[in-house]
């Protein structure tokens, strides 16, 4: 049972990440590879506050989200005016820089050694020390992220994002500040991803830079694209599928070392097959990149 709850927690955490990235990829049409850095910012901020300052978890989570929002603003300011491939490369570079800071600011983050013994989150006086409690919190966060994205994309704000996705020249001709809307979407995505990071840090009780590499960003983007970018349920389907897939390999009895490599191969093949045969994803309607 604990194993299933553990999978459920990860499904919810990655749903938050995929849903938040979908605001950029699926609704604003911009592929970002910096998402795991926002996830890391939230995780590290929460962990540092919990370990060094012992502030309440909700405060740490809010500060984690705020700091990620600031980082996202910085990344947006640096990269949002670039187009297409250049933008993707710029976000990749920003990810490398942010993770470089995390890995080398030893005094604050303990660098490659990571931060361990992160205390369990305490919410409303109740210490969350069981898996199902974290599953409940992660589910709440996933529902919140889903609701925020759905509220935004079904509003006039979302209408502009969709226009930016399809034709930013038209959006400009209609008086919409394309860079402003893209930047806001970037900040919202960063804030939501940080929420997932905060829960991850307290749940795992240990974080180090290897959990937030660019492969993590690619995994999140794969979830969005395979599930269906720009659709209501696509990111949820993608997150659950790609989290559960390795577990199926485990059930098949493959050795851990083989399963880990096989997982990467399956992700890659799945991504290529989807882009070729069903670019709108499993449950989506917007064909990313077309």
């Amino acid at each position: 049972m604990d194993y299933l709850i553990h999978i459920a927690v990860f499904c919810c955490i990655y749903t938050v990440l995929a849903e938040s990235l979908d605001l950029l990829v699926g609704h604003a049409g911009i592929l970002s590879l910096v998402h795991a850095a926002f996830y890391a910012t939230g995780a590290y901020t929460c962990a540092i506050i919990a370990v060094h300052l012992q502030w309440p978890f909700p405060v740490a989570l809010l500060l984690g989200c705020a700091s990620s929002g600031v980082v996202a603003f910085g990344v947006a300011a640096l990269s949002i005016r670039l187009r297409g491939d250049l933008f993707v490369i710029a976000t990749f570079a920003c990810h490398v820089v942010i993770l470089g800071v995390v890995a080398n600011w030893i005094g604050l983050t303990r660098g490659p050694l990571g931060i361990f013994d992160i205390p369990h989150a305490v919410v409303l006086g109740c210490s969350l020390d069981t898996g199902w409690q974290y599953a409940l919190m992660a589910l709440t966060m996933a529902l919140l992220a889903w609701a925020v994205v759905q509220l935004l994309v079904s509003s006039p704000f979302g209408r502009v994002l969709h226009a930016v996705r399809e034709d930013d020249v038209l959006a400009m001709a209609l008086g919409k500040n394309v860079f402003y809307f893209k930047s806001l979407a970037f900040i919202v995505a960063g804030v939501l991803a940080a929420g997932a990071g905060g829960i991850y840090a307290h749940y795992m009780r240990f974080i180090d830079p290897t959990s937030f590499t660019v492969m993590e960003s690619i995994l999140i983007a794969s979830m969005v694209i395979i599930g269906g970018a720009g659709s209501r349920w696509g990111p949820v389907v993608g997150a659950v599928l790609l989290i559960c897939l390795p577990e199926v390999l485990r059930v098949l009895g493959l050795p851990g070392s083989v399963a880990a490599h096989l997982r990467q191969i399956i992700y890659g093949v799945l991504l290529v097959v989807m882009m070729r045969l069903r670019p709108q994803g499993l449950v989506g309607h917007f064909a990313f990149g077309r």
């Binding site: 704000f157 209408r159 919202v188």
Partner: peptide
């Protein structure tokens, strides 16, 4: 409704 807080 194009303002973030109004949209939310």
């Amino acid at each position: 409704g194009e303002r973030l807080w109004r949209a939310l």
